[in-house]
């Protein structure tokens, strides 16, 4: 399960760096072989690709053979989406993450820094 997750990550990294798309066989060539020098099986890569397609990260060009896979959005777009989830905690309808420390106002950040300085002085 975890290994498959890491494989998904490597496949996406390849697709993100090739915006024109790749076939499963291209990916077999591009992905690193395991320590024993064994290449990934094309069926394994196809399984990973269909999982990524189901999750909405990859689309498949069916008019060519073999099928060509492209990333739905760039790495930067997905990173922005992730950060939106993390930072937009205000709306109850979409707030599903609770950060260790949420957004603070500038005044509060100042007060916290002063508090820290006070603690450092107390300790010394």
């Amino acid at each position: 399960m975890a290994a498959l997750g890491e494989l998904e990550r490597s496949v996406m990294d390849q697709l993100w760096s090739t915006p024109t798309g790749l076939t499963a066989y291209d990916l077999v060539d591009l992905l690193p072989a395991d320590p024993g020098g064994k290449r990934l099986a094309p069926t394994t890569v196809l399984t990973v690709l269909s999982r990524l397609e189901k999750k909405g990260f990859v689309t498949r060009e069916r008019s060519t053979r073999p099928h060509r896979y492209t990333a739905v959005a760039s790495r930067a777009d997905h990173a922005a989406e992730l950060m939106r989830d993390v930072l937009d905690g205000a709306d109850d309808r979409v707030a599903v993450l609770e950060r260790f420390v949420g957004q603070v106002s500038p005044a509060e950040a100042d007060a916290l820094r002063e508090l820290l300085l006070g603690r450092v002085r107390d300790a010394s």
Partner: peptide
Amino acid sequence: GGHDTTGPMETR
């Protein structure tokens, strides 16, 4: 909390 946060500064 005291770290300068980037991003939207709208506070709950």
